[in-house]
Simulated assay, not measured.
Amino acid sequence: MKDDEIILRIETFDAANGGGVGWYEDKGAYHLYLLETDAPIARLKPVGTRDEVRLGYWSHRRKWEDIDDMGGCVLPLDQALDHIAENSIFWTWT
């Protein structure tokens, strides 16, 4: 998947959920954060050549962690974005 497509899908996710989410790329991952407070929301790290990403959240340890203890959660990008919108673990620090 190309970077432009990932960015477009992140921006579409933001618009569909009322806006207010920013993103930046760092070390091959896309980091989502709340624009109002700069609070971290989620980390999307592309894996392989398809549209799958490893999903991370900002933990109480003040670092990115996998949402699954068994090697991380890898989902198609749109499914990962839906999971972010619906799961409160991503909105703890916002």
Rank of each mutant, 00 (worst) to 15 (best):
L35F: 07
V53F: 02
E5I: 15
I41W: 03
I67Y: 00
T12Q: 10
I89R: 15
G28A: 11
E86C: 09
G22P: 03
L8C: 06
V53W: 01
K2H: 10
R54T: 04
I89W: 00
G72F: 08
L81M: 09
D4V: 14
H83W: 07
R50S: 14
W23Q: 09
E11P: 01
G56N: 11
G18D: 00
D69T: 04
G71M: 10
K45Y: 05
L8G: 08
P46K: 12
E25Y: 04
S59P: 04
L77Q: 01
L81P: 06
G72C: 10
T94R: 12
E5L: 15
A15C: 02
L8K: 15
W93K: 15
A42W: 04
R54L: 12
L32N: 03
L32E: 00
E36G: 14
G71N: 09
W64T: 09
F13L: 02
F13P: 01
T94I: 10
G48Y: 05
E11T: 10
G48D: 04
R62M: 14
F13E: 00
P46H: 09
L81W: 02
L75M: 14
I84P: 07
T37E: 05
A39E: 08
D26G: 06
A39P: 09
I89V: 15
M70D: 09
A42N: 07
E36N: 11
N87S: 15
Y30H: 10
W23R: 15
E52A: 10
K45F: 03
E5Y: 06
C73A: 13
H60D: 13
G18H: 02
Y33R: 11
V53K: 01
Q79Y: 00
W93C: 14
